[in-house]
């Protein structure tokens, strides 16, 4: 049984969290929630690290969290600029450029 093995269980949880994060990024219209989705994705990766590496990955995990904090700060600062320009945080307003 998969669920009896804690490693498999944690990895399953990490994969679910990855799905939640991706769903959050794709489904949410509020830019703050999109950034939260990015953070959930990063936490999924961190959980996967811990599930597979145990205590030996502490150093890696702390560095990852620090990097993700920087990315979140940059993303939020761009969100602030979006708000200053358009007065809204709605992602569906960001449609002027057609990638």
């Amino acid at each position: 049984m998969v669920l009896e093995d804690p490693t498999q269980m944690n990895l399953l949880g990490a994969a679910l969290l990855l799905g939640v994060g991706l769903f959050c990024i794709m489904s949410q219209n509020n830019l703050i929630k999109v950034v939260i989705g990015l953070e959930i994705l990063a936490k999924a990766a961190v959980l996967a690290f811990i599930a597979l590496g145990g205590a030996s990955v502490q150093g890696y995990v702390i560095i990852i969290i620090a990097i993700e904090a920087i990315v979140a700060a940059v993303a939020l600062s761009i969100v602030v600029n979006v708000w200053r320009h358009s007065g809204s945080l709605d992602a569906s307003d960001i449609t002027e450029l057609k990638g």
């Binding site: 990490a14 990855l18 990766a45």
Partner: peptide
Amino acid sequence: GMKYVVLSAAGSAIALFAMAL
């Protein structure tokens, strides 16, 4: 920039998940 940071950071996080594997 908003599009870029969201897509690229999501990509980085997925790659990070792969690194855990």
